[in-house]
Design a protein around this nucleic acid. Structure first.
Lengths: 228, 228
DNA sequence: CCGTCAACATGACGGCCGTCATGGATGTGG
DNA sequence: CCACATCCATGACGGCCGTCATGTTGACGG
């Protein structure tokens, strides 16, 4: 089937996740999966769903988030082009508490859970990649826990901006609401911090976008970067 | 070599982590690893170490923690008998920021990283178990992030007590210091919360141990309304 | 039996930040 | 071009909890 163009397939060839995996093995994924499109702000999966399929983002952006019973929402992960989502889903029978939605119009390669597990057992060469990816995610989650202990909202916002800069470059197309949901705070506090950063000439802001002029200044604090 | 008694080996046979793995595969681990003992409060690994070997706890308890530069320490994980630690270490080349120490006198099975990776490729039947275990850990980390958003220290302490009760039963042999490092707060706040729980007859406390009389009450989230 | 230390317990204070409120700026659709 | 929604921006207030301080209790060794 001609669901995927060659340039789309090349996205996977060069994706960090697939590093070291032979190209023919990678391309096998296109045979066992199909393409799905999600318009902006639509749900890929809702809370409590037992998310079975594995997704690979071909273009766009997925936001993985959860919300507590008090209504506060936090974003755990932003999945961009070439990255996988729900790698572990097929192996966990329990329903997760996460929800996934398209932060922008997003095109994905979707692979059913049992097909993915078959793929893994047939091509064990990919196992180290999976473990490596999950390991990075686990370290990142632990970093964020440490972050939240520190309780300094300013530091959290700065680290979020720094991390997003490393992942997406500049300008960052996010609202203060989105930033605050990643940093684990409120839009007001985020705006206050960004106001200070603006006064220092480190960033400039417009509606829905943030230009970072001095990335080094954002890293001035603390160790370790989170993988968002 | 007769490093391990039969009863020790049986610990693994019945361990949840190894569920579904044939016994002869499990026992192969004893051939490629060796026994190590850690006295109480000694370090298994320090911060920044590239922890290569995988550990399985045979008796005792490992505490996996990290501390921020402000000196605050947080405990991520308590590894008890039959549970693995550092499953992903062999696959990650970077140094981690965690440190592991023996919370009690602890005896472990230690397997060098490359030997463990060889074992995994030779016995792929264990891969789903690894992924499942890591997946649970990842969900748990995300839950804690959500918890920290909630910001109510009382709820965090109660949830910690509830979780520890499910894992270790009663009485819990932990000090307020240890509880606070798991809950992400201070010993004082922990003691204050436990004081209220004591007044309600939910727990009783002695030096270094906590008896839980009403586990269900700890799961009650509407603590704030009860307090008034 | 006593000295010492670690842990328990509790009170007081202050700062951070979440909440609410208000107003202005910007983009969008009819 | 205007109405409206959304986002940005900033001020004021109040509560939670981290910090410090003080005293008590229990454990352990000689």
């Amino acid at each position: 089937m001609a669901q995927f163009t060659q340039s789309e397939k090349d996205v996977f060839r060069t994706a960090p996740f697939f590093k070291g995996v032979p190209a023919d093995v990678v391309f096998r994924l296109f045979d066992i999966g199909d393409a799905v499109h999600f318009p902006k702000n639509t749900h890929v999966s809702a809370i409590g769903d037992t998310v079975d399929p594995v997704f690979f983002v071909m273009s766009g952006l997925l936001r993985i988030s959860a919300c507590s019973e008090s209504g506060r929402r936090i974003t755990f992960l932003l999945v961009k082009r070439g990255e996988p989502y729900n790698l572990l889903g097929p192996y966990l029978d329990c329903g997760r508490f996460l929800e996934a939605e398209a932060a922008r119009p997003t095109r994905c390669l979707r692979i059913q859970g049992n097909q993915f597990m078959t793929f893994v057992t047939d091509h064990p060469v990919i196992v180290p990649n999976i473990l490596r990816w999950i390991g990075i995610g686990l370290d990142s989650a632990n970093s964020r826990i440490l972050d939240l202990m520190e309780k300094k909202v300013e530091n959290r916002v700065m680290r979020v901006l720094s991390t997003l800069y490393e992942k997406f470059g500049t300008p960052l197309l996010f609202t203060s609401q989105e930033i605050s949901e990643i940093a684990g705070t409120t839009p007001e506090s985020t705006l206050r911090t960004m106001g200070q950063l603006r006064d220092m000439g480190i960033i400039t802001t417009q509606r829905g976008q943030i230009r970072i002029h001095d990335p080094a200044a954002l890293k001035n604090i603390e160790f370790g970067s989170l993988k968002i």
